[in-house]
């Protein structure tokens, strides 16, 4: 079994899908000979040809819109948006058409599309290259939104997304692309959708997080161990729909909830989790719910991005205060 980075695991899943399903077509800017700006599609055009791995024109709206027309013909497009900050021109297509077509045709036209994109900051990128905009998409009915946190999970979730008969937004944390290696078996096994994953069992507090933040949360949990604070860490993984039941089960055991995300706080996915626990699990709580998030500011240019992204210290402080409350 090979030890792979997250971006290599994505490449492996894409290759597996292209190899085993003739309907799978990759499209996006610079994904062909160049292999994508993060090399997620490296070598795939050479292996599968320019009709299966297509360099798109430089227009995100047309990439998403053409995916709609292709999927309606039975293809399974996997479209890459080069950075999440460039999603806005594609939102008309994603929200008005991808998300709605099955419903508005009463199931006549269905759209098995995956829209992949790098998510979040922390890699010293230019402006508009470090955004965490999952809330924009989670608010829309008809979409699934996924965000893996490890190479193996990225492989399994991407295969699940490609095989799903409905549109899936697949967020790839840029900070994790090459952060760590993990053994990933190219077994073609898809991960379960619509569920979260327990990364660490603990008794004192439930910490819900996703994407790159999971690594910082695990580090904070390790630090807090020395203070005898025992954290249960949940990787949300599916940002829409949210596996509320698993979170509520955990909170029923620990009595405390901290939510950590890199995206801005206002109307963030964390607010939805907090509201649901308040609605359905308030009597299990021994302390107020706390969110540790990006600030409600513009995502700063890279000199200040580490002041924006919740640090291990900030996360540990939030957990400590919640446990001691």
């Amino acid at each position: 079994m090979a030890k792979l980075t997250l971006v290599e695991a994505i490449n492996l899943a894409l290759a597996h899908a292209l190899q085993n399903d003739p309907d799978v077509v990759l499209m996006g800017e610079d994904i062909g000979l160049n292999g994508g700006v993060f090399r997620a599609t490296a070598g795939l055009q050479q292996r599968f040809g320019a009709l299966r791995v297509q360099d798109s024109v430089l227009a995100e709206g047309v990439i998403a819109g053409m995916a709609v027309g292709m999927a309606a013909q039975g293809l399974k497009p996997v479209a890459e948006i080069q950075f999440m900050g460039f999603i806005y021109p594609a939102l008309d297509q994603i929200c008005n058409h991808m998300a709605r077509m099955r419903n508005r045709t009463r199931g006549r036209i269905t759209l098995p599309i995956v829209v992949r994109m790098p998510h979040g900051g922390g890699i010293h990128a230019p402006e508009h290259h470090s955004e965490s905009l999952e809330s924009l998409l989670c608010h829309h009915a008809g979409l699934r939104v996924l965000c893996p946190s490890t190479p193996a999970r990225a492989y399994g979730l991407l295969l699940a997304a490609i095989r799903n008969p409905d549109p899936v937004i697949f967020l790839e944390p840029t900070r994790l692309y090459r952060l760590a290696r993990q053994e990933v078996e190219d077994d073609g096994v898809a991960a379960d959708l619509d569920c979260c994953h327990l990364l660490r069992e603990g008794q004192d507090v439930t910490v819900v997080c996703w994407g790159a933040a999971t690594h910082d949360v695990l580090q904070a949990a390790h630090t807090l161990e020395r203070e005898s604070i025992d954290c249960e860490v949940i990787d949300l993984s599916s940002l829409s729909p949210i596996d509320h039941n698993s979170i509520l089960d955990s909170v029923a055991r620990t009595g405390r909830l901290v939510i950590v995300h890199e995206a801005a706080r206002n109307c963030g996915v964390g607010a939805e989790i907090a509201a649901t626990v308040a609605e359905r699990g308030l009597y299990h709580l021994h302390a107020p719910i706390r969110r540790v998030t990006g600030y409600d500011t513009v995502m700063p240019y890279f000199r200040l991005e580490h002041d924006y992204i919740p640090s291990v210290t900030r996360i540990a402080d939030g957990i400590r205060e919640t446990v001691q409350a």
Partner: peptide, 25 residues
């Protein structure tokens, strides 16, 4: 396989290009 009515103006155009791409593929 015909698409339903499209209310957001011009957004049907990329769909048609996508279907045409599927015919080409």
């Amino acid at each position: 396989q015909d698409f339903p009515w499209c209310v957001p103006i011009a957004s049907q155009m990329p769909h048609a290009a996508g279907a045409a791409m599927a015919f080409k593929v």
